[in-house]
Amino acid sequence: MTKSSVVPDRRVLLVEDDASIARFIDMALEDQGVDLTVCGDVESALTVLQERPVGLVITDLMLPGLSGYDLVDRLHSEPALLAGAKLVIFSAGVNLDKQARLEGRGIWRILRKPASVSQLQACVLDAFLGNDVAPVPAADVPIEPAACGSESEDGDAILAYFGGDAGLFRAYRAKCLVQFEHDLAAGDAALQSGDLAALQRLSHSLATVFRTLGWAEDGRVAKQLEALAAAGDAGASATAWAQLRTRLLG
């Protein structure tokens, strides 16, 4: 897709700090005629909004520094920044308490991670065609343990998240395998420095990536690590990270 093929008012701002998740969204929207800008934190997202208008903002809630909640509050208090753009929450673990916290903040739609290619494409299409009917966000469901990387598991993931496109799945998986080297370094550094908040964010993102790939057992371990890091349990977090390290190295 060339920039000349992008409809000018189809600008999408994605606020997401995980490279693999951002890459999945980029691949999902590649042929949708949108101009996608990715920001890894709230500060850079606000800079983009101050520089030029967009038609759609998609933001995670768990971000480094200021959170997605902070971004939502800022856009609610300064509507000129949003300039009429639709605001979408894209996050895992969006329960009733989190929905209540977001109520009255101008949220147009909530997408639960991991979302499928078709869900992301439908969200963008609805946003730019003026369809204001937003689906009720699904409640979180537990990740069932399963053998990782099996052919049947790949097939389930391809159908669930990639619209049956095996080629797209393989291309995404290849990019994730490259990114895992960076995730390894980031996790090791967070554990060594005692930055459990960074380890929590990393494991939160990896849980989504693993589920998108169909690696349910790895997703379960990542969610366990996220909870341990959030609780400040450094010892148990180190044990759980060692389990994830093995998979990332593989």
Rank of each mutant, 00 (worst) to 15 (best):
K3C: 00
K3G: 06
K3L: 15
S4P: 00
S4V: 10
S5G: 00
S5W: 10
V7E: 13
D9Y: 15
D9S: 15
R10H: 12
V12H: 03
E16N: 08
D17L: 00
S20A: 15
A22G: 15
R23H: 13
F24P: 05
F24A: 08
I25Q: 10
M27N: 00
M27F: 09
A28Q: 11
A28T: 08
L29M: 14
E30T: 12
L36E: 08
T37V: 14
D41S: 07
V42Y: 10
E43I: 06
L46N: 04
L46A: 03
Q50C: 07
Q50S: 13
R52G: 07
R52Q: 12
V54A: 00
G55T: 10
G55E: 05
T59K: 06
T59M: 08
D60N: 14
D60G: 14
D60L: 07
L63W: 06
L63A: 04
L63V: 01
G65S: 09
G65P: 05
G68R: 10
V72F: 07
V72I: 14
D73A: 14
R74N: 01
R74V: 09
L75R: 07
H76T: 11
P79V: 11
P79N: 13
L81Y: 02
L82C: 02
G84E: 10
A85L: 03
F90P: 00
G93L: 06
V94N: 01
N95P: 02
N95H: 05
A100Y: 04
A100N: 03
G104K: 05
G106A: 12
W108H: 11
R109H: 01
L111K: 09
L111S: 02
S116A: 14
S118F: 00
S118Q: 11
Q119V: 01
L120C: 05
L120S: 05
Q121E: 12
C123P: 05
V124R: 09
D126S: 15
L129N: 15
